[in-house]
Design a protein around this nucleic acid. Sequence first.
DNA 1: ATTATTTGGAATTTCGAAATTTTCCCTTAT
DNA 2: ATAAGGGAAAATTTCGAAATTCCAAATAAT
Lengths: 230, 230
Amino acid sequence: MTLAEEADAADRRKSGGVYERLREDIVAGLLAPGQKIKPKQYAPRYAASAAAIREALLRLAAEGFVESAPQRGFRTLKPSAESVWEIAHFRILIESEGARLSILNGGVDWEANLTAAHHRLSHLEARMRGEALNREQLRYWSGCDQIFHVALIAACGSNRILDQHRAIFDQFKQHVIVQDPLLGYRGEDLVEEHGAILTAALDRDPAACAAALRSHFETYRRFSDATMTW
Amino acid sequence: MTLAEEADAADRRKSGGVYERLREDIVAGLLAPGQKIKPKQYAPRYAASAAAIREALLRLAAEGFVESAPQRGFRTLKPSAESVWEIAHFRILIESEGARLSILNGGVDWEANLTAAHHRLSHLEARMRGEALNREQLRYWSGCDQIFHVALIAACGSNRILDQHRAIFDQFKQHVIVQDPLLGYRGEDLVEEHGAILTAALDRDPAACAAALRSHFETYRRFSDATMTW
DNA sequence: ATTATTTGGAATTTCGAAATTTTCCCTTAT
DNA sequence: ATAAGGGAAAATTTCGAAATTCCAAATAAT
């Protein structure tokens, strides 16, 4: 191990747990779909023992980011038409309910945060318009998108819904956003769709908000169906 | 089945089932709420090493049955007014959506299974009427109740919804059904409520089904508020 | 030629103990 | 008497290796 690698490893050991880093790498698509994850093999990469990797993988399996069969180890999930549909469907369910509750409970602070997140996002999306995204830009846009969608449900008052949303949102990223197909997407409809969601939320209209979310996902579905071969 | 296979299965039941047995015991309320679970202490009870217990607890923590803080071990969750409300709310959300999808996708087989489960349940509930339940009877009724509610969403077509429902249903049991307060419940309204859910499902009316589920839970809430001190 | 069995190697899981962190109690000082 | 500090005991987490299980290639049998 070189000096640079040693410093890097020490830095990572200090910065955070194996679980968080492994989770990020899986969500970001650094590990190919369906790829097997052998704890001992990945131990040096995360500067931890095989047992520590295994422990992180157990948690990730329970949350649905990797699959695990007894005596058969772990592997990342391979996206399929069914799994993507199930994930999108579940995210709509959670996010619509979170938005509905936020509309009920949210105050001015919620509206302000949501508006701010939307402002940053729509500014970015307007600049993006018509340009094909590379991987780096896609990651940045994805972060802004997530901040907006989290802000939408932030005032729901249920920790369970917030936790579930974080899990399902990241699985959505893992399965559709980060995969190649969206790299070519030019985001023509995004500004209008996010605007519709914001308007419905500020109008305190849960049904309109849910409808806006459904059509938002319809865009993903159309694009995925057109480009993915599965 | 050969002798070797039989021995193998028996062996697995014993050693590999730590997670399942621990889960059952927690859901059944055998471990007091808020109680600390020290792996080494429970190792003899489950005929496994401390590491095996710890592994099971990690999975259960990720699923929401126990809480775990770094360097601070595991403990069962203590029900509170907020946690019970969040769990009930989330279960209504999942179960209503599962019922809605089953109404869309379900065929005669779904209707038949649901009707059968309801028949057994209502027969039991009619006999229960007016009699205070002891712990054993409560456990039996709870099993029939679960079979009915699972049958309701069985045709939803989404493994994710089925898995989430199993998790949230068992947490509901852990937090409200198994706790003492419901021991005195005489189930006056149960027959009518389960009947309303069945009727709405067979009428293929998702909105009525969701409404019936909400009022079903309203009964739990009223009874819990009246008897629990938190 | 195809299917079944054996066998060697690799991977997963389990285990007991070491290393680290927390908790609790006792001492000391204000 | 209360609060702060120190230190021992207990508990949690980590680790490396042993034991078990799976996979696949090679051999044997139909």
